[in-house]
Design a protein around this nucleic acid. Structure first.
Lengths: 142, 142
DNA sequence: CTTAATTTAATTGTGTTCAATTTAATTATA
DNA sequence: TATAATTAAATTGAACACAATTAAATTAAG
């Protein structure tokens, strides 16, 4: 039979379901984020800021596993929308600090119920969710 | 305490580790795929073709959870590289069929060891891999 | 102190990803 | 049969994602 190529079948790979499921879950967020005038990437950047209030682009990149090529336009767009301020650190002018505005901070009120709403569409039990969460963080080495 | 916002912490979300891990795993493929002159998206399209030999853009999209906006340039690029031929079905001119060339078919020889090499970098036991695989397919509803 | 190395963002170019629209072909309906 | 509805790809425009390069600021080394 052709089982010499079974290793190349889509359903036997890890990459395919991982990548497809990730895009699927991001799509579940979209209608909720539209109401906040945020894209998904802007949303996860805001989550870091809701937790910290302020951080540098470098720290944002470390938290989100994204580089400045991605983050520079994301942060500029958040500034355009009035959710953050951008300014250079006075101690080290290389560092760009990103800080929540009042508008950006209060946006978390409208975001608070999104994870639960999305989670309910996921068809995973809480136990399955916890297992998946753990395995993903193991892949991320965190 | 601030636990009213715990639900908005990055590490308590499903979306973040899922999306980040997916990109991380795609990055693991890149050096191997560079040798085949394939991007990741081109690679998963080729996997469908290695299995079927020929299929329509629509079928490719259903298998990969991608639409024609993504696949049209991917398939054109594969044609440029000489790995596939594109032609309209004679029975239904709406349908674009994509077919492996000899060059595209023989590329699978060089691809066969990639999944194992990438898997070895993943730091998951076979059991963990199987569990993850099952949970991801559950999210995908397949 | 001066030069070299490093660090931080920004920029550039390629390749997705997706929503929305368009075009052409086919099928269903009046 | 004409017309309407549907289907399959392609196109368009916006937003990532990332490698590679650049520019400016800081730090380290001679």
């Amino acid at each position: 039979m052709g089982e010499k190529n079974d290793c190349l079948k889509l359903e036997n790979q890890m990459c395919f379901p991982l990548y497809a499921a990730a895009r699927e879950v991001v799509k579940l967020y979209r209608p909720h984020l539209d109401k906040l005038n945020l894209t998904y990437t802007q949303y996860i950047a805001m989550m870091v800021l809701w937790e910290r209030g302020q951080c540098s682009v470098k720290e944002l990149g470390e938290k989100l596993c994204l580089d400045s090529g991605t983050l520079t336009p994301v942060v500029k767009s958040l500034e355009q929308k009035g959710f953050v301020r951008r300014f250079r650190s006075s101690e080290d002018e290389r560092i760009l600090l990103v800080e929540l505005t009042d508008s950006g901070r209060s946006l978390s009120d409208s975001a608070r119920d999104i994870p639960e709403r999305v989670g309910a569409c996921l068809n995973l039990t809480p136990e399955e969710g916890a297992v998946l969460h753990g395995l993903l963080y193991k892949i991320l080495g965190r």
